[in-house]
Design a protein around this nucleic acid. Structure first.
Lengths: 140, 140
DNA sequence: GTTGACCTTCCAGTAACTGGAGCCCCTATC
DNA sequence: GATAGGGGCTCCAGTTACTGGAAGGTCAAC
């Protein structure tokens, strides 16, 4: 199968598939004309990669997961550990974003958003001193 | 003030401050010995940048925000728009991560995490067909 | 005068692609 | 046989926002 077909099947852009070959995640054969020739197993691997990436696993995680998948003697504990660490990363990220969101939405709400220059958002970023109860002081 | 002092004051690494100069966010003076010489206004600007970055604004957002901050004729609407767009980006990101988190935590819960090779996480990534009610099928 | 802390510039690397240039291959049609 | 199109190929550069490191200059203290 040529790269275009595999791209369609796996949902990954051809560029990405070439990149995955570059970094050693797949090793398609080559036809006599130099075109990559993908086996079913390659397609399967790429689809696996696509799903793992969609879950936010890093490329290195993916590499480990593929290795574990290929190893029928694996312990599921190893897989689970990778997934749990990733889950923790996700939770941290969500927490970080949620905090940003809270501060930012306070500021946005406080901003008139009209033609006048007065702006609590800028005031907060500049840490301008305001009367007690300023959003900037309270939020961080 | 030298870069080290500014780093301490602003909380930004010296490397980052140099980088911000590189991309034109600050323009410190230079002493005769070639050292950067920061004014109070530079320090203020860098602290502004630090807070904006902490809220997740991109560097280009920061550039715009600094420009608006300097412009006393600005309309707060412009600032608000930048902040609202950023808020939307944050919301999308949170939504994406929350979805990942849901799928992933289902899979993690379903995985025994022991010495045996059977692993629902890998099975899902590989889209192995399971009996009806499989997590993989249900989750995506 | 020599440490040691601080400063300088420049280059390379990070993560995971993505875009583009310049070129080859294959099939179909005129 | 020429050409047009729609693949494919490689290689290089760019993205974001820094970060690390090398090689070397400056300054204050001992």
């Amino acid at each position: 199968m040529n790269i275009g077909d595999v791209a369609d099947l796996s949902g990954l852009p051809a560029k990405t598939i070439r990149y995955y070959e570059d970094i050693g995640l797949v090793e398609p054969l080559r036809s006599s004309n130099g075109y990559r020739s993908f086996r079913q197993s390659d397609v399967h691997k790429l689809a696996f990669l696509g799903r793992a990436r969609a879950l936010g696993f890093t490329i290195e995680d993916c590499r480990s997961l593929l290795k574990l998948y290929a190893d029928t003697d694996r312990a599921s504990a190893e897989v689970k550990q990778i997934a749990e660490e990733h889950l923790d990363r996700i939770d941290s990220k969500i927490a970080e974003l949620t905090e940003m969101r809270a501060t930012l939405s306070h500021l946005v709400d406080a901003c008139a958003g009209d033609h006048r220059p007065d702006c609590p958002i800028l005031a907060d970023l500049a840490m301008e001193q305001k009367a007690a109860g300023s959003i900037g002081k309270a939020s961080r």
